[in-house]
């Protein structure tokens, strides 16, 4: 499935909606979106991923990239990831560094 990414910033909260397949071919599109956020006052990065059907390690690298570029104080939320993506976050230890939530704000 084609990958799409849309972002917006409201009240220091960056919301990025990811849909489709995030692999090493499409990761650069996500990276460009993160680069737009660099330098802005962001408290929370909210990744809406309920319609993200596939995520390879290239997607994990983009989460690391976001954390390193936006600053370690930024909280990263993943809203409604599919079970298989949670498995990947678990396997790689990412589960400890991101917040998995059913909805945002709670």
């Amino acid at each position: 499935m084609d990958f799409t990414v849309v972002s917006e910033i409201t009240d220091n909260i960056a919301t990025v909606t990811l849909k489709g397949s995030l692999d090493s071919a499409s990761a650069s599109v996500f990276q460009e979106e993160i680069q737009k956020l660099i330098g802005q006052p962001i408290k929370d990065l909210v990744l809406r991923v309920s319609e993200l059907s596939f995520m390879a390690s290239a997607g994990l690298r983009m989460i690391i990239f976001a954390k390193q570029k936006l600053g370690s104080a930024v909280n990263i939320f993943l809203v409604s990831p599919q079970d298989q993506i949670i498995d990947t976050l678990q396997m790689t230890g990412f589960i400890h560094s991101v917040h998995i939530v059913d909805k945002y704000p709670k």
Partner: peptide
């Protein structure tokens, strides 16, 4: 493969890469 220690390292201190083969 990435060590257990690396997998528990906060993201801001991690190298980018090295996870694909483990996965």
């Amino acid at each position: 493969l990435p060590s257990e220690e690396l997998l528990n390292t906060p993201l801001e201190d991690r190298p980018i890469g090295g996870l694909g083969i483990m996965i």
